[in-house]
Amino acid sequence: MFKAIVSRLALGMVTLLAVTMLIFAATEVLPGDVATAVLGQGATQATVAQYRKQLGLDQPAPIRYWRWLSGTLHGNFGTSMTNQLPVAQEVAPRLRNTLFLAAFSALIAVPLSIALGLLSAIHENGLIDRGTNVLAVFAISFPDFFIAYILIYIFSSRLGLFPSLATLSSGMSLAQRIHHIILPAVALTALVTAHMMRTTRNTILSEMSKPYIETAFLKGFGRIRVIVRHALPNVWAPIITVVALNLAYLVVGVVVIEVVFVYPGIGQLMVDAVSKRDLPVVQACGLIFSAVFVSLNTLSDMLALYANPRLRRGAR
């Protein structure tokens, strides 16, 4: 088990390194650079050249990459090329915000979707099953910004219950923060619940035709008990994988929600940085995103291993 974790982590580090190279290469390939992007349409050749020189962009690409990498390994993420702020200082508060929103949404979405998935499996083809299915398809079919606008329209413009701007500021108490992020959290929940819920339901149902389940039924157990005690432990692995994927999505894939609710998260920062070719910021965001993916995937593999009785035995 320990060996498995170490090799996983090592693999994760290699992945991260590869990602930084890919990001660097991608920003190099994009037309224009930070100088043309910041100075805009009105730039002349002279001003662009001057700006490039100021930022050290006249150096060849491998040297710039190496400088950035060695800085990062020493814990120095560099300064933003556009507003000269330290990258760490710029990223940290936004990362906190993103994690806060993701954690809060996950707290709602994960228990909700697994419970609904179980309920649907228990009442297969019943009213609850069909109802949740319809709702889930409904939620997943609408684009995220549309759901967000509908929520703003109903709960903010019409009812005045929640603010449409989820902008957090430093003086807010936890209760105020939660009040501000309820609408984006609900929108995110609507987006990720369907996937997790349907996976839970379908994996359980596909397990139901197995002989050991039939045996359990023949023993005279009720449907609820069979599903919760017999089927569920064997299907944790795929459910955990899907949950992990959705958690990662909550961290990295919510730019649109951030924009609509004016939530100062890291997604918007990365989009701004890419459009300005602000490489240190892009790299920092990219590193964080890939770290989230790698660690959540690793974690889900471990948990799946632990949750599945057969795999657990095999690992010993």
């Binding site: 329209y153 413009s157 005045g160 603010p163 449409s164 701007l165 924009v259 609509v260 004016v262």
Partner: peptide
Amino acid sequence: YINDTGTRTAALRS
């Protein structure tokens, strides 16, 4: 900073 026009409008109205 409210770059989304729909949100800006909603915030003005509310």
